[in-house]
Structure formats: C-alpha cells, structure tokens
C-alpha cells in the first residue's frame, strides 16, 4: 500500500537533509511503526506521505499510485490522526466530526458511533474547549476514522492518555488492522510499538537504521539471557546469564545441576535497549 524509495527532503533546499535516502514499504493490513526521537525525520516523512510536504527527491507510492499524480482524491482514502489537538475548540465534539465528515466525497462513519467508540459519548454536545487533553486526543483520533480510511496515519495515538483509555485505543487500532486497514504509526513510545506493530523502522538523523518485526529485531540485536533468582545469606539475588557466551553457559549449567535457584526465566531485550544498541541514541 505504501512504497517509499530513496526519499530525500531538505527544508533549506540544499544538502542539509531532514530525510536522507529513506526506503521502506508497508503492506496492506500491516501496522508499520516509525520510531525515532524528536527531529529524527518521522514527521517530515509522514507529511510527504500525506501530501502536506511536496516530494522533492525519491519515489513515493501510496495506495498503488505515485504521490505526484495524486490530487485531492487521495484524502478520501487516508485518515490522519495528529498529535496536536487541532480541533475547533468553539465547536462541540459532534459538530467537529460532522463538519469534518462533510468535507469528504465518500460515505462517512456515524460521528456519534465514533465518539462512543473512543469513550466520549457523554461529551458529544460539549464544546471542545471544555475537553481535557486526553479527551481532545481521542476526538482527534475519532476524527481520523470519519472517512473509514484504507490507509491510516497515526501520530503518537496514545500520547496523554491514561492506561485504560490507551488500552481502548490500542484495541481499536488492532480491530482496524483485522479489517484490512493499513496503518502507518509514528511514535517514540516503544511499548505501544512493541504491542501493536507488525514491523518497525528505527529512524535517527533522517536515516533508517533498521527495519524488521519487533521479534526479529530482538532476536537479531538482543542477547539471549536467562534471569535466575537465588536465595543467599544476604537475601534474594538476581543474576543474568547469556546462553551464547560459553563461560556464562557453564555457570548456568552448574546452577541447574546444583538446583541452586528459586526462579529461572528466559529474558529478551526490550525494544528501547535495541534502539539504543542499533542507533547509539536514546528516544527522548
């Protein structure tokens, strides 16, 4: 559904690139995570894909059509959920969605159903200026579904949400994937990326460092470890042993043979640890 090849973009129109030689593809019905710290090039890439930034160099295909050839009809097939709460604050929740729905040339979803879906059913007729940050975020999220998009761009979809609401939003995203929606998600939240994404790309300084499924990235870059807890005179002690390093493997074998442990679990590296390992950068 999305094919990006050798994408470059410079705001200053020189060799100072915000996005440099970026290539990736997103398959139909896939959730693709674009992970990187602020200023890494996530928004620039997304803005090119949704037609907000003009394509300067490279090839971008969205919904099987080159982005240069797309007119306004592109926006009938995509939905965009912004991180900023960019709604009309003087309009109510339902008025915001109804207005947005009227801007499309395709059949749209029922605004009330969408607001109920994101838990705003009690604030349908309340002006958005009276919404909390989390409620505004959910309103923006609901608005992005109004045209039932086949390609859905999500920018930090759970930012500012409490765990229960975030879980509800994640469920909606998973449900959309099961219905065949292609999802491109930019985030710096490794947990949501790990929970939701089929594949992820790490981006720093405008360049992609790695693309794969979270599992493969962990297998490829993470150490295979076993976490062991032992009771000693000084109390409970926790130790990690690599099952690749021979010396540590022998130590672990001895503990098992001696039955000198309380608990033993295999452990994989977190995505955040892998991101740091691959890019040499933290996500903040």
């Amino acid at each position: 559904m999305i094919n990006v090849n050798n994408l470059f973009h410079s705001y200053t129109k020189d060799d100072n690139y915000a996005v440099k030689d970026v290539s990736f593809n997103v398959k139909k019905g896939e959730i693709f995570g674009f992970l990187g710290p602020s200023g890494a090039g996530k928004s620039t890439t997304q803005n090119i894909l949704i037609g907000l930034l003009k394509l300067q160099k490279g090839k971008v295909i969205v919904a099987d059509k080159e982005i240069r050839r797309f007119g306004k009809e592109l926006f009938n097939t995509i939905g965009v959920s912004f991180e900023q709460p960019n709604v009309y604050k003087k309009l109510t929740g339902i008025e915001n969605l109804k207005f947005h729905a009227s801007m499309y040339s395709v059949p749209t979803k029922n605004p009330e159903e969408l607001l109920t879906m994101v838990g705003l059913e009690d604030s349908i007729n309340k002006r958005a200026e009276g919404y909390s940050k989390g409620m505004l975020q959910r309103l923006v999220f609901a608005r992005s579904m109004i045209n039932d998009p086949s390609i859905w761009f999500l920018d930090e979809p759970t930012s500012g949400l409490d765990p229960t609401t975030a879980a509800k939003i994640k469920e909606i995203i998973k449900q959309k994937r099961s219905e065949g929606t292609t999802i491109f998600m930019t985030t710096h939240n490794m947990q949501i990326a790990d929970d939701l994404c089929d594949r992820i790309a790490f981006i720093t300084d405008g360049q992609i460092s790695a693309i794969d499924s979270p599992r493969n990235l962990k297998l490829k870059y993470g150490q295979k470890l076993v976490k062991v807890t032992q009771r000693t005179e000084s109390g409970i002690v926790e130790k990690r042993f690599s099952i690749i390093d021979n010396k540590e493997k022998q130590q672990l074998k001895k503990i098992i043979d001696d039955n000198n442990f309380e608990t033993m679990h295999s452990q994989e590296a977190t995505l955040e640890e892998i991101f740091i390992k691959v890019t040499g950068r933290r996500l903040e």
């Binding site: 907000l52 306004k72 009809e73 926006f75 912004f82 801007m103 499309y104 040339s105 923006v140 608005r143």
Partner: peptide, 14 residues
C-alpha cells in the same frame, strides 16, 4: 495557530 488548517488540508476539500 490552532493547526486546524492542517487537519483541513488532509481532507479532499480545496
């Protein structure tokens, strides 16, 4: 300022 125009330009309306 409120970036509502950014949301508007992601609709098919000119």
């Amino acid at each position: 300022d409120h970036k509502t125009i950014k949301a508007f330009v992601t609709t098919p309306t000119n």
